[in-house]
Amino acid sequence: MAMIEPVAPSRLRLVAIPRMAAGGRWRTEAMRAVNEPLLLWFTKGQGRITIAGNTRGYTANNAIFIPPGVMHGFEAGPSVFGTAVYFGRDTDVTLPHQAHHLRIRETFPQQELNVMLDTIQRELDSSAPGHDRAARHHLGLLGVWLERQIAKQPPEAPAKTDASKRLVARYTALLEREFRSGMGVADFAEALGVTATHLTRCCNQACGKSAHAILQDRRIFEARKLLSETRVPVSRIAQELGFTSAAYFTRAFQHVTGASPTGFRRAG
Rank of each mutant, 00 (worst) to 15 (best):
P37D: 00
H72F: 14
L102T: 10
P154R: 04
L174D: 06
F42C: 06
H97R: 08
A135C: 06
R89C: 00
R177M: 03
G57R: 05
A52G: 05
I150K: 03
Q149L: 14
L95G: 09
D90I: 00
A173N: 15
R105V: 06
I49M: 01
T55V: 08
L146S: 03
Y86W: 07
T50P: 09
L141K: 10
L102D: 02
Q121L: 05
G143C: 06
Q98T: 11
A76Q: 04
H72V: 04
T91W: 12
G45N: 06
E112F: 03
T43L: 08
H100A: 03
E156N: 01
P96G: 07
R48E: 04
P68A: 13
L40G: 06
V144C: 03
F81L: 13
N54H: 14
H137Q: 15
R122K: 07
S127M: 09
A173S: 15
L146E: 04
G73L: 15
P154A: 07
R103T: 14
E75T: 13
M71I: 07
V80D: 08
E112M: 13
Y86K: 05
I64D: 09
M71C: 15
G45T: 06
L139P: 13
F65C: 08
G57P: 01
F81T: 14
E112T: 11
A76P: 00
P96F: 10
Q110I: 02
F42I: 15
T161Y: 00
Q153H: 04
V85E: 08
V115D: 02
H137W: 08
G140K: 09
E156A: 05
Q121P: 01
E147N: 14
K44Q: 14
S164P: 05
R148G: 06
